[in-house]
Amino acid sequence: MSKERSRTGLRSGSRAWLRRHAYSFFSSIGALVRQPVVSMMTISVLAIALSLPLGLYTALDNVRELSRNWERLDSISVFLEPSQAEQDARRLASLLSTWPQVLSADPISPGMGMNELAGQTGLDANTIEPGWLAELSAEANPLPWTLEVSPLDDIDVAALAEQIRQQAGVDLVIVDLAWLQRLDALIQVFARLVELLGVLFGAAVLFVIANNIRADIQSRQEEIEVMALVGASTAYIRRPFLYSGLWMGLAGATLAWALLIGGLQLLQGPMQSLAVTYGSAASLSAPPPVLTLSMILGSGLLGILGAALAVNRQLARIKS
């Protein structure tokens, strides 16, 4: 009998707890909606603060993607002696492709080489005197037969280049490693910078929300006192403020994401034209959904933390 009673007591207790939570939940939304301008300003500040590291991260991500497309630059250019003809080039190419360090070896004819060069330098049949290039390609092409050798990942490219240089008919072996290494290092620096900015702006989110909640508590001091007078526990008084922090964090990060998507849309056009001039189709990609989602949730958590910081300080002050 008494067991039965305590069980129903427990159940009605947990129901009351749920109802109190629901009330805090809705009253925190109500508080944000009641002051639309103030809420919007705070959320905008948060969004701008968060969009900076997020935007930098996205830029970095896109550069990384682009550099992956440039990995063919990691390939070794083997210039053959001018005396070498097509069959020599093909023979050497098939020999090299049997080497264990080599992924592929493609022969490039002087004509193809000229076209590629023309494309990369912006010279083409339309911009220069018609027929000149064709003439040059056919008769007086100064370019020799060339092999483009792609090494396998994680091998000693310099040693491979040296080995190729030993082959008969090879004039020049060019490996532009320094350029790629420099780019890689630069990307590392920027990645670290983005991490640093992420931490700094995360802290900014925390303090902006804490300050906002502090001001909110001060303006609602009377209400808090009345609630305490009629039997509200500290947890009950604190809860709507924690929810407010959560909402601001979530909304700020969501708006930051929207700003980023909008920015990418604006950049897409110019980026396209830029890519066309390089003869490639580059497009900007948004940050992956997992990252976006974790940023939004993280910002929400920072919001709760900031609110807790402010509430605990302010409530202690009011009580004393």
């Binding site: 129901r15 009351a16 707890w17 749920l18 109802r19 109190r20 009330y23 009377e222 209400e223 009345v226 609630m227 009629v230 039997g231 509200a232 009950y236």
Partner: peptide
């Protein structure tokens, strides 16, 4: 609470009690 309706003022203790 001057920014609330009469009903909400009176309801406050009951909301806190979770009725």
């Amino acid at each position: 609470l001057t920014d609330r309706k009469v009903f909400d003022n009176v309801a406050l203790p009951l909301l806190i009690a979770g009725l």
